[in-house]
Design a protein around this nucleic acid. Structure first.
Lengths: 234, 234
DNA sequence: GATATTAGTGAATTTAATTTACCTAGTCTA
DNA sequence: TAGACTAGGTAAATTAAATTCACTAATATC
């Protein structure tokens, strides 16, 4: 029985803590409903705060979304970098990149979708910090390919950005059904097939099998001994 | 000088014609501003009709968008099919598919973007007629690859859907900057590089290692010098 | 010429983001 | 420790845009 004259009272939290709570709520609501269908009312309610409060910390709904995505994306990249360190060899590294990427999608399809649809396709994306994060991320793959070229395993005339686009674009297409809750994809099988396909497409043209040429030359020298000087080349 | 008591009057058009006018206006506004920023007021104004009229023909804004996209997509596919007919050979066909696809993107980047962002990523896409159109379209590429397998030009163990995903996904990534008005892409160069890469990745394994045949011929010439039976191994 | 049908209208309604005017818990300072 | 200042917090007001509604008026048909 609250008296009619009871003063309205509330808990006041430090800025950082309140922001974390709002972002956690926003992440849930955005994930469950998508950007458009998520209402600020829902988010405020779940965060246990009034709608107006959200605007104390974020300029608008989109700013809140970007903050949520940024946090997730950064942690994803951190994990990615850690897993990749220590892997040696072009093929194994490529396989790891692809595998990890697929794993992130499996782990957070809703956030991936938000990133693809709402963030990456916006006009201001190319000026955003998320663009730079993404750039660093995909650059890892390009460095791996460059390494393969340096070691002679990969054709030097290949277009590295094209390979990047085929890998990440191919993955995106492949998982598109999964991202909208239609069907699934086999994580390991996809990674293996994709790695095989890309490695085959990039492979340096086969030289003659190792050492075979030298062996034939020795044979020819043997033959020379039999027919003396002058016999031979035509 | 209209009198104050002039009856309000308007032109009444047959359903089909009015719909075509509204769709033309919608296509312009959606293209210029994108789905969210396009307002029904804008579209109505450009079509020379009141807002309420639009709802006589389309259940809502999204329905109008889908109608616009459907018309464009169908005409694009018609053109595509026509250009492809008469092209022979796995490589040439693949090249044509890729080239035509890039051409469509160059011709209507705004509608492509709407298709990618607003149509293909919606929950109901997989039940829509646009999905089936798209399915037929991408199936053309898969048939080409199957033909290549049948003729022994392509490894039979390749995953055809994966190739489809890498081609269309790769293209989409490659042109993503262009689609948001950042930079351009070289139409022919992209088509050629992509075709090369895919063909190399799918190529049937060479029967004999490259150059081995020539070496064997040299060996045969060596053997010829002995010109007779009894040349034993040493 | 009466009548049914459907194009056409524009104002009213609804829904959701954002603004605004105002409150109050905590902190700093004279 | 009172007073003032800052910043978290609120709820109601405003705005903007899609959608609905009640109504008007061409056109076709009987």
């Amino acid at each position: 029985m609250t008296t009619a004259t009871a003063k309205r009272s509330f808990v006041r939290l430090p800025r950082e803590q309140r922001m974390r709570e709002i972002e956690a709520a926003a992440r849930e609501v955005f994930s469950q409903r998508g950007y458009d269908a998520a209402s600020m009312t829902d988010i405020a309610k779940r965060a246990g705060v009034s709608e107006g409060s959200i605007y104390k910390f974020y300029t608008n709904k989109r700013d809140l979304l970007l903050t949520v995505i940024r946090t997730w994306y950064q942690s994803m990249i951190d994990e990615f970098m850690e897993k990749l360190s220590g892997v040696e060899g072009t093929r194994a590294q490529l396989q790891t990149v692809i595998w990890q990427h697929l794993k992130s999608i499996k782990a957070n399809p809703d956030l991936c979708r938000l990133f693809f649809l709402e963030v990456r396709s916006a006009d201001d994306y190319f000026d955003s910090d998320l663009f730079h994060l993404n750039r660093d991320y995909t650059h890892v793959l390009m460095d791996i390919i460059q390494g393969g070229i340096d070691r002679g395993e990969i054709r030097p005339d290949i277009s590295i950005p094209l390979v990047r686009d085929m890998v990440f674009g191919g993955i995106e297409h492949r998982v598109s059904g999964f991202l909208v809750n239609r069907g699934d994809f086999d994580h390991d099988e996809t990674a293996n097939q994709l790695t095989d396909m890309v490695m085959a497409g990039m492979a340096a043209p086969a030289k003659t099998p190792n050492g075979l040429e030298a062996l034939v030359e020795r044979l020819e020298r043997v033959a020379d001994r039999f027919d003396g000087p002058g016999g031979g080349e035509g």
